[in-house]
Amino acid sequence: MHIPDGYLGPITCGVAYAAMVPAWIIASRRVKKTLAARQVPLLAIGAAFSFVIMMFNVPIPGGTTGHAVGAVLVAILLGPWAACIAVSVALVIQALLFGDGGITALGANCFNMAFVLPVTGYFVYRLISGNSPVKSFRRVVAAGIAGYAGLVIASVCAGLEFGIQPLLHHTASGQALYCPYGIKVAVVSMVGGHLLFGFVELAVTSLVVKFLQVQDPTLLGHNREAAS
């Protein structure tokens, strides 16, 4: 899902940055409106949480491990717009301070992982959980499905971004200049991988929500206004 520099051409990079600017502006306004000044450190906590959540190795069948992205989890905990800022900040830190991930592809990475993933995931979570009580099992199921669905939808976006490169940028002799695979190959491989390993996201999102229902259910109910 994390797109490095050099995979996407200038048009895609530019369009992705342009698409993220209004998303960041809306997110900043929503967050300023809904988060009290006292809660400003919460955004940083959310960003750091989404950064380190990727470092947890989660055991998967077959003896190997995978990791979750955690963007939908942050959206459930802080609201989708706060999650958009938090995950964007985590991605910028990863790219600028740790030298991982692309700088020219940062707009595309933020679009996929900080916008599409938490916003669609949160929508699915709200749709399934409805008005069920905070401690209900329905919310655990909703969180798991939301994490999985958000990840798969974001992988479709990433696949499309890869897949349009040979159409947008090639030489006169047909030589691809950036990602060389067409839409069919790129989307199938991206979505296939995430359909298969997306259950790590499903397990992590649902189990963390289940754990918080027991330990401190107020944490799952405080961001309702931020979400709407």
Binding site: F49, V58, V204, L207, F211, L212, Q215, L219
Partner: peptide, 12 residues
């Protein structure tokens, strides 16, 4: 792992 993630969120 997930209990640790949740614990981390609670503490922070």
């Amino acid at each position: 792992v997930t209990a640790n993630m949740a614990g981390l969120w609670l503490r922070s």
